[in-house]
Design a protein around this nucleic acid. Structure first.
Length: 509
RNA sequence: GCGCCCAUCGUCUAGCGGUCUAGGACGUCGCCCUUUCACGGCGAAAACAGGGGUUCGAGUCCCCUUGGGCGCGCCA
């Protein structure tokens, strides 16, 4: 199921147990520039906060001519799924956040993690702990009751041989814990958070290996980040305390601690961390809502990061301007209204052909657009492209774009929206004459049909709107659409006249 | 409870001791444009959480309070 990646093999072969002085990539080229990594756990979809973390890692690597690695943290065998892995990779690809090298699967590296734990044990920097789950619970409760942080008390840290023998005799399977420093403090120099200090007495002896011998997350991240040559860790600030504990592992192994940057989480409208109760969504959901990846990227980068008053950044500008030091320490709330506005900007600025293609490519992901996708042929594509200027000005998402394009795909006799039927009924008196004038138009173009309709307005003294509205309803079955002369043009003479004709002989409305 | 982090319009933010009667963007509300709806243009309402310091001078520095967030597993 989960394969051992080439990079993982490579790391085993050449970097263990100690990293070589001049690390190389699989192809033999020397590493240069910073190395970042995005390390999601495949226990759910790639949520929007993870996407932003990936973006920042990607921008940082690009900005400094480095590389971004992708590591799947699948050590939780119960909750990790292949489907989640596929979604993460799919989501990153859709967003255009490419990683360098092969994907590293953390679980595949369990042996190496255990090896490091053994080293630590041998160096007396770790020890076996035989405390039972019940004892641990009790410990935490006592600590809390006494106003202390709920921590492991280190009771097996200096256990005697006799005590160990007794526990073994009882058949207790031990975990391996790190001998963390108990005095002094641990300092994190964080690019975003600044200098953060933790008193070591508040950090306990974390578990490195579970009683079944599998590595914990704490051990695995440190070993993998080290082996993969990660120089800059950029992750959510929910990991800030972990950074201190992980520092202890680095120190115990005598490894360099990578530079850190803990970025604030994205919050929901209520100010709390995005979660299921907010209806937290995977990035695939944003695609399904019709957002453009470049718009989502732009929105995301401006969440908690800014360059003066600037709102819009092309990808190149983003890379050039990105600086971790300008990332804010306070969490930002996710605002759909602004995302939508930004998406609208991107759509209007998009090239018509490119946007048409984007819509077509996205159709399979949009809800209820199967028939539209099925009806697509060269003629429809051409119509879509021709209508695009009028369509894109009226849409903020690809969904709205598809909705606006419905009239192109509608079959006669047209389904009429109630309000549209009213308009047809109200303007019925004008329709026969309009039909006649349009039929007599010397050529079929927006200019020619406009001339015909204006001539009718002049002849009858009606306002243009009195004629255009019923016409719009007859042609599109809706009350809103692009400019009516553009609609006529795109639909073509035959179809236009037929749709108007349907309203005359009562086929519709 | 303990630890850490944060605090400018409803939201995203500019501001890095004087140029702040606090700027921009989204949203909201008007007006204009107009064949609908949009787009676009113009305009309006809207914020320095509170209290102490430091300083000639504080949105900007320090402290406290309050509020919010995150963390505290043999999860990641």
């Amino acid at each position: 199921m989960l394969r051992l990646s080439v990079l993982t093999r490579f790391l085993h072969a050449s970097l263990n147990p100690l990293r070589s002085k001049t690390p190389q990539f699989t192809d033999g080229t020397p590493m240069s520039g910073p190395v970042t990594r995005f390390a999601p756990s495949p226990t759910g979809f790639l949520h929007i906060g993870g996407a932003r973390t990936a973006l920042f890692n990607w921008l940082f690597a690009r900005r400094h001519g480095g590389r971004m690695l992708l590591r799947i943290e699948d050590t939780d065998r119960e909750r990790s799924t292949d489907a989640a892995i596929r979604e993460i990779i799919d989501g990153l690809s859709w967003l255009g956040l490419t990683w360098d090298g092969d994907v590293v699967y953390q679980f595949a590296r369990a042996d190496r993690h255990a090896e490091v734990a053994a080293e630590l044990l041998a160096a007396d920097k770790a020890y076996h702990c035989y405390a039972t789950p019940e004892e641990l619970v009790e410990m935490r409760e006592t600590a809390r009751a006494e106003g202390r942080p709920p921590r492991y008390d280190g009771r097996w840290r200096d256990a005697s041989a006799a005590e160990v023998a007794a526990a073994q005799a009882r058949g207790v399977k031990p975990v391996v814990r790190l001998k963390a420093p108990r005095e002094g403090e641990t300092v994190i120099e964080d690019a975003v958070q600044g200098r953060v200090t933790f008193p070591n007495k508040d950090l306990d002896d974390l578990v490195l290996l579970r009683s079944d011998g599998t590595p914990t997350y704490m051990l695995a991240v440190v070993v993998d980040d080290h082996d993969m040559g990660v120089t800059q860790i950029i992750r959510g600030d929910d990991h800030l305390t972990n950074a201190a504990r992980q520092t202890h592992i680095y120190q115990a192994m005598g490894w360099d601690v990578p530079a850190m940057a803990h970025i604030p989480l994205i919050h929901g409208a209520d100010g709390a961390k995005l979660s299921k109760r907010h209806g937290a969504l995977g990035v695939d959901a944003y695609r399904a809502m019709g957002y453009l990846p470049e718009a989502l990227r732009n929105y995301l980068v401006r969440l908690g990061w800014s360059q003066g008053d600037r709102e819009f950044f092309t990808t190149g500008e983003m890379i050039e301007a990105f600086d971790l030091r300008q990332v804010h320490r306070s969490p930002a709330r996710f605002d759909f209204a602004k995302l939508e506005n930004m998406n609208g900007h991107y759509m209007r600025a998009a090239d018509d052909a490119a946007l048409t293609q984007a819509l077509i490519d996205t159709l399979p992901y949009l809800a209820g657009r199967a028939t539209m996708a099925a009806a697509l042929d060269d003629a429809k594509r051409a119509q879509l492209l021709a209508a695009m200027p009028g369509l894109k000005a009226r849409a903020k998402t690809l969904n709205e774009l598809a909705e606006g394009a419905e009239f192109l795909f509608a079959r006669r006799p047209l389904p009429m929206a109630p309000k549209a039927a009213e308009l047809v009924a109200k303007g019925k008196a004008h329709l026969p004459a309009l039909h006649a004038r349009l039929a007599a138009a010397p050529e079929w173009s927006a200019a020619a049909t406009e001339a015909a309709v204006r001539a009718e307005a002049e002849a009858t003294g009606a306002k243009l709107g009195d004629l255009a509205q019923p016409l719009r309803a007859a042609l599109t079955g809706k009350t809103t659409s692009p400019g009516i002369f553009d609609v006529l043009d795109v639909l073509g003479r035959e179809e236009s006249l037929a749709r108007i004709g349907d309203c005359l002989d009562g086929a519709v409305a």
